[in-house]
Amino acid sequence: MPLDANGAFLSFRNVKKSYDQKTLVVKDFNLDVQKGEFITLLGPSGSGKSTVLMMLAGFEGVTSGDIVIAGQSVTRTAPYRRNIGMVFQNYALFPHMTIAENLAYPLRVRKMNKAAVKDRVNEYLRLIEMGSFGGRYPGQLSGGQRQRVALARALIFEPSLILMDEPLGALDKKLREQMQYEITRLHEQLGFTVIYVTHDQTEALTMSSRIAVFNDGVVQQCAAPAQLYERPSNAFVADFIGENNFIPGKVDRIEGGKARVTVAGGGTITADAAEGLKAGADCVLSIRPEKLFIKPTSHAYDNELVAEHVTHHYVGDFIRFYFRVAEGTEITIKVLNDLAAPDLKAGDKASLVWLAKDCIAFPA
């Protein structure tokens, strides 16, 4: 299949979207997607991620810019000519058709002969492990089963691209996790290219090749899940992805990519310096709850900060401790629920420690 000049299968080039010709809901969106990638668009409500998906599907027009699939611009191409499969949150199955008939529908629309349709339907029923369900109707299936059928129907005509818009939003936690596994399994087995929209961070981190984090119509960072979590590019991404602690401070100096930061109470902290950070400026230190430890500890550390224990919550496999530092900033620590877990009472003072490499100083 032809690719873009830069080797990408799908490219967004300076794509913008405005509904009123005044306010941009998507601002200069650029993204290259390789064949077989699983790209998730993640962000808060109103951030522009679903609008990007609708423009790619052809259901929304592009105000300016270009969308290219397999080397061909599809910006002005009708939706039905883009060879794209879609999976929706509400399944969008035909209730009056059996499961087999639902799967056969996109093949019949494409004039495939009856014998080939039957073989393809049976193949995909086996693929989603529902080989004996062909004669049932959507109303006779569970939510998870209906979503598997919706996924199979989107894949059965072998589209160049699959779009998924909050496909697991209607499922409970256990079913969501099962379907995350199902979608990942099928993606690995068939190698199709996916653009996936969700507001669920765990879902995005679990399933994606890369995640594009949106805020106010702008992609803040697009990276692999581990890089996004461990090395966020700015304070918004650090705050939006997973849990984080933010400690205000002032940059004393920057040397070799490391910032020396003074925090309230007179402590000095060493952290990785984010892009744009300058000596003498106010900053905010970002540190994940699982990267902090309470002395005494066997873990190595570069930084130490005295804090007051406020309370703690038992969560099962771990205990969540809440502390308060000198100027009132609250800090959360996740501690494994084992024999080494500290026994602290409200008001107790404790030394919190961590490694400089696990802490990032962002411009305030």
Rank of each mutant, 00 (worst) to 15 (best):
L42V: 07
S50V: 02
L41S: 00
L41M: 03
E37H: 13
I39V: 15
D28K: 02
K27Y: 06
I39M: 12
V26F: 07
T40P: 08
V52C: 15
T40G: 00
S45W: 11
I39T: 09
G46E: 00
L53P: 07
T51A: 05
S50N: 02
K35L: 14
V33D: 08
L53C: 08
G48E: 00
D28V: 09
L42Q: 03
D28A: 10
M55C: 06
L41D: 04
L56R: 07
G36R: 14
G43V: 01
T51H: 06
V33F: 04
I39D: 10
F29G: 03
L53R: 06
M54W: 15
D28E: 10
L41A: 00
G43W: 05
L56D: 09
N30P: 06
L42W: 11
T51L: 07
F29S: 07
M54N: 15
V26L: 05
V52G: 03
E37M: 14
E37F: 12
M55D: 02
G46S: 02
E37A: 12
S47E: 06
V26D: 07
L56A: 08
S47C: 09
G48Y: 04
K27I: 10
K35V: 13
T40C: 10
S45H: 10
K35I: 12
V26G: 02
K27Q: 13
V52T: 11
P44M: 10
G46Q: 03
N30I: 11
L53N: 05
F38N: 07
M54I: 13
F38I: 10
V33T: 08
Q34D: 15
L41E: 01
G48S: 00
Q34P: 14
G48H: 01
G48T: 00
T51Y: 05
M54A: 14
I39E: 05
G36T: 15
L31Y: 04
L56T: 14
M54V: 13
K49I: 06
N30V: 10
P44Q: 08
S50D: 03
